[in-house]
């Protein structure tokens, strides 16, 4: 079989639900790969089911199904062996929010700390989709899931802040409503070395109780109202916002999804949270070294770089 991904990473016959955000994400990711074949590490999640029954696969690339918490560590082993054999294919961990924010957190953190040469993608459908839609720490406050029947009480974990705090070379959030920005960032990530983290809000009609044909519109609204900031962070210090909120009311985004029809939804609190996050993001962006400034990276220094150690190179 002679396979390359020129015609996409996802082939016909995959098992995803209609309107699944992850499907579109795989297609755009495949577009950015532009013919490069990645090696995949996929923990149990909807993306395992995507593949279909062994030995057939809907992925146009080889990969291994890992245990739930292990994709970043399996990916570490894979990439080290590729590199020691002078092979430059990217290793891509393609994971859900459960495998990222929850059970795989320690594994992810450790691989990021070691700056393994891996691209880690989290498609965030804000639930455990595979097991029927339970809460995760990525579930937004107020959303109903099968384990938060009255709406989740706790706030969503800020994974981008966590990854930035690891000072990985690159962390970015991708929008399924902004194709060019999405593809540009994946290409940029592919061109870098070390640990790269990509987050992708991924509508799940089954769990969000929304219409399958509204997935892209929902992401556009999530970006527009600011609940899903689209930005990138270089080396944990240089922040760049890619798409700014356009004043879309938060209520409009929530109203389109039945998961938010819950007693526990406090729109004012959620709005305050979104605003606070944006105040913080803007401050981080303003405090960032300018684009033509280089900040100290792992290549330059022994100890990991921190914001204050960034020096302007003339």
């Amino acid at each position: 079989m002679n396979a390359h991904v020129a015609d996409g990473l996802l082939r016909a016959g995959n098992a995803n639900c209609a309107g699944c955000g992850m499907t579109l994400g795989l297609r755009w990711f495949g577009e950015a790969l532009a013919g490069t074949t990645p090696l995949l590490a996929i923990p149990p999640c909807c993306a395992t089911v995507t593949s279909g029954l062994f030995p057939t696969t809907a992925y146009h690339a080889p990969g291994i199904a890992t245990t739930f918490a292990s994709s970043a560590a399996v990916g570490s082993g894979m990439s080290r062996v590729l590199r020691q054999n002078n092979e430059d294919q990217p290793v891509v961990c393609w994971t859900g929010d459960g495998g990222t924010y929850d059970i795989g957190m320690a594994t992810l953190s450790a691989a990021a700390e070691r700056n393994e040469d891996v691209i880690y993608v989290c498609y965030d459908n804000e639930i455990y989709g595979n097991t029927g839609g339970q809460r995760s720490s990525a579930t937004p406050m107020g959303a109903k899931t099968t384990t938060s029947a009255r709406g989740k009480v706790e706030r969503k974990k800020d994974i981008m802040a966590i990854m930035a705090a690891h000072r990985v070379p690159y962390a970015a959030s991708l929008s399924l409503a902004h194709h060019d920005d999405f593809v540009r960032k994946v290409k940029l990530a592919l061109g870098l070395g070390g640990f790269r983290f990509l987050l992708m809000l991924s509508p799940c009609p089954a769990g969000w109780k929304c219409q399958p044909d509204e997935s892209v519109a929902l992401v556009r609204m999530a970006v527009g109202c600011g609940i899903y900031p689209v930005f990138e962070v270089f080396d944990g210090v240089r922040y760049r916002v890619n798409v700014r909120p356009d004043g879309t009311p938060l209520e409009d985004y929530l109203a389109r999804q039945k998961r938010f029809k819950s007693e526990g939804l406090d729109v004012d609190f959620l709005q305050a949270d979104v605003s606070a996050r944006w105040t913080q993001l803007r401050a981080l962006e303003e405090a960032s070294p300018a684009e033509d400034e280089e900040c100290a990276t792992l290549d330059d220094v022994q100890t990991p770089a921190v914001a204050v150690s960034c020096e302007v190179r003339s």
């Binding site: 090696l39 560590a73 082993g77 894979m78 594994t107």
Partner: peptide, 27 residues
């Protein structure tokens, strides 16, 4: 030709071995 990862747990140590092995390394 080879390197060992100082993993953050045994669970991950074995996961790294799995990744290395499936790429053809002796692990």
């Amino acid at each position: 030709k080879g390197s060992f990862v100082t993993a953050e747990s045994e669970h991950s140590a074995m996961a790294v071995c799995i990744g290395a092995s499936v790429m053809g390394a002796r692990s």
